[in-house]
Simulated assay, not measured.
Amino acid sequence: MLHSVPDIDDSEALTERQQAVLDAALRLLVEEGDNLTMTAVARRASCSKETLYKWFGDRDGLLTATVQWQASKVRVAAVDRDRLDLASLTATLERFAFDWLKVISSDTSIALNRVAVGHAGSGKDDLGAVVLQNGRFALAGRLKPVLEAGRQAELVDFEDAETAFRTFFGLVGRDVQIRLLLGDRVELTEATIGGDARRATQQFLALFGAKTGPQGLRTG
């Protein structure tokens, strides 16, 4: 059963104090993995367990909130459908790719995903489903409207937004996440991440770029 916690896809929905608590929970996940407890989080964040239960419900609710908090760090800028051009679409896709690579390569995300993978199919809880729902699926929900806007502006051409998103996601992530989860020490500096984000965006646009004629008219 999925636990109901406040929707924090928008980080502005959280107070600074709540953000600090979730950051403390993420640090503990890195240090202790599956041994995370409400008591330990309360101690690390210098708050009461009662406050944690009030904000997040229970341990699973807290874990759900940490997933949402991590996912909120992958930003998708709003686009003006009437003024969208190739430059702004490219910038939006590159920003998304950069943020996502930076998040998944962080120690906190690696630790959180390892716990989720360990729980998947175990019957212990549904953290794997929580990570999917508030991570990958939530990110798709944010980016697909941008892709649809690009198609409306005839900057990209595809039949299905989900398929286009999955292709972009694959171009960005490649084998990086699985290698990190398995302990490979992949060197991902900001410069490297920036280059990877640009490369993935250009590859995506090469695959899905709308074909236009000399006057900007579609030719097929």
Rank of each mutant, 00 (worst) to 15 (best):
M1Y: 12
M1L: 11
L2H: 08
H3M: 13
D7Y: 04
D9W: 08
E12A: 15
A13V: 02
Q18A: 09
Q18T: 13
Q19M: 14
V21N: 04
V21D: 04
D23W: 11
A24E: 14
R27D: 09
L28V: 07
L28Q: 00
L29Y: 09
V30D: 07
E31K: 07
E32A: 11
D34I: 15
M38D: 13
T39D: 14
A40R: 15
V41C: 05
V41I: 14
R43G: 00
A45D: 15
S48H: 12
T51K: 06
Y53P: 00
Y53A: 12
Y53H: 14
W55P: 05
F56R: 04
G57N: 04
G57P: 00
L63D: 05
L63S: 03
Q68M: 00
Q68C: 02
Q70K: 10
K73R: 14
K73L: 10
R81F: 08
L84D: 14
L86I: 12
L86F: 01
S88W: 00
L89G: 10
T92I: 00
F96Q: 09
F96H: 04
D99R: 03
S105T: 07
S106F: 02
T108N: 10
I110D: 01
I110R: 10
L112R: 13
G118D: 12
A120D: 12
G123M: 03
G123L: 06
D125G: 00
D125F: 03
V130H: 05
V130L: 02
Q133C: 09
N134W: 12
K144W: 08
K144T: 13
E148C: 10
E148H: 08
E148I: 11
A149V: 11
A149Y: 12
Q152M: 07
A153T: 07
E154K: 06
V156Y: 03
D157H: 06
F158W: 10
A161S: 15
T163H: 05
R166D: 13
G170Q: 01
L171P: 08
G173F: 03
R174V: 05
V176H: 03
R179A: 12
R179V: 04
R179E: 15
G183S: 10
D184Q: 13
D184R: 10
V186L: 14
V186E: 12
E187H: 04
A191L: 10
T192A: 00
I193N: 05
G194C: 04
G195N: 01
A197H: 01
Q202M: 09
L205V: 04
F208P: 09
G213N: 01
P214M: 11
Q215E: 15
Q215V: 14
L217R: 09
R218K: 12
R218N: 11
T219H: 10
